[in-house]
């Protein structure tokens, strides 16, 4: 994976000319080691260097949440993080939610509750929800709203998303007790 990307010039991105820095991190459980431009954002690194295109850019200013990923266990807007800040970090993107061709419970509930329409905010929304359930497996409704308040959705009106997160919380609890 690393070798392949070391030589790929990101097309949208012009090198700042500053000396490159080595970035070592774990993305979706895989070790990544790559020389990068120090001015590159983490969003750009994920999308254009690692081809993880599930993470979207909706505003580039940290206002819409479409680029949300999980960074060392916390949901963050990857457009506001420099890629080099990810040194030594663990990163999870939407591509890492399912395992071995199996959807996660959260993804299944998003489908069942129709918690998506156009789908553009969905990856970021899923990551905010995942981070919430990881730190608080049985969130109250207000806590769910708080956790996804930074993720704008223009289609669904949020209700089915909140419902899906509640259902996922219940099912994950059942699964963990089994």
């Amino acid at each position: 994976m690393c070798a392949e990307h070391e030589h790929k010039a990101a097309q949208t991105y012009q090198d700042s000319g500053l000396p490159r820095v080595l970035l070592n991190c774990t993305v979706n459980g895989e070790n990544v080691s790559q020389w990068i431009d120090p001015t590159m954002s983490l969003l750009h690194f994920l999308r254009h260097e690692l081809n993880l295109l599930g993470t979207k850019e909706g505003c580039g200013e940290g206002e819409c949440g479409a680029c949300t990923i999980i960074f060392n266990g916390r949901a963050v807007n990857s457009c506001l993080v420099l890629a080099q800040e990810a040194e030594g970090s663990r990163i999870l993107t939407v591509e890492g939610l399912g395992q071995e061709g199996q959807l996660s419970i959260l993804q299944q509930e998003f489908i069942k509750e129709d918690a998506l329409q156009c789908g553009f905010c969905t990856p970021g929304m899923l990551m905010s929800a995942r981070a919430l359930l990881d730190r608080n497996p049985e969130p109250e409704e207000e806590e769910i709203k708080e956790a996804i308040a930074g993720n704008l959705c223009r289609c669904t009106g949020y209700y089915p998303i909140i419902e899906a997160i509640k259902k996922a919380s219940e099912r994950e609890k059942e699964a963990s007790q089994r």
Binding site: Q11, T12, R47, G54, G98, L103, L116, T122
Partner: peptide, 27 residues
């Protein structure tokens, strides 16, 4: 019934023009 494209959208595999790049593309 569930929407037909739901799987692509919850896995981040649905491709939008936003995600597309073509060989030799300019910006």
């Amino acid at each position: 019934p569930d929407r037909q494209e739901a799987l692509e959208k919850v896995t981040g595999r649905a491709r939008y023009v936003h995600d597309m790049e073509l060989p030799g593309m300019l910006y």
